[in-house]
C-alpha cells in the first residue's frame, strides 16, 4: 500500500497505521461464511500537492483508485485524512 501511494501521489507526508487489533472480532460481521477474521483496518494520513484545489470526494476517489485491488481483497476499512500542503 505504501509503495502504491508513494508512486501515485508523491506525497510530502505519508503515515499508515494498522489499527486491525482495535477492531478484532467485530470485522467478521457480514463475513461469517468465511469463518475468518482477517480483514484489516488502516488509518492513513497523506499530504500531497496533488490534492490542492480538490474537494474531499475527489481526493478520496484518487486514493480509492490507486488502492482499488487492495480494497477489493485485503483492506476491510480505510480511514483517510487527505491534505494539500499547508492544510491541517
Amino acid at each position: 500500500m505504501r509503495d502504491v501511494l508513494q508512486a501515485g501521489l508523491s506525497p510530502t507526508r505519508l503515515e499508515i497505521t494498522d489499527e486491525s487489533a482495535l477492531h478484532a472480532g467485530h470485522s467478521a460481521m457480514g463475513h461469517k461464511a468465511s469463518g475468518e477474521d482477517v480483514e484489516s483496518h488502516f488509518r492513513v494520513v497523506i499530504e500531497a500537492a496533488a490534492f490542492a484545489g480538490l474537494r474531499p470526494l475527489a481526493r478520496h476517489r484518487m486514493v480509492n483508485a490507486l488502492l482499488k485491488s487492495a480494497l477489493e481483497t485485503d483492506i476491510h476499512a480505510l480511514s483517510l485524512k487527505l491534505l494539500a500542503p499547508g492544510e491541517s
Binding site: P56, L57, R61, L71
Partner: peptide
C-alpha cells in the same frame, strides 16, 4: 457509486461520501 466502502450517504440523489468525508463536512 463507484465507492469501495460502507457507509455511503446520498442527499437528493447525489452521492456525498463515506464516513471520513461526512465527518470532515
Amino acid at each position: 457509486s463507484d465507492w469501495p466502502t460502507i457507509p455511503q450517504l446520498y442527499v437528493k440523489g447525489e452521492f456525498i461520501g463515506g464516513c471520513d468525508i461526512i465527518r470532515e463536512m
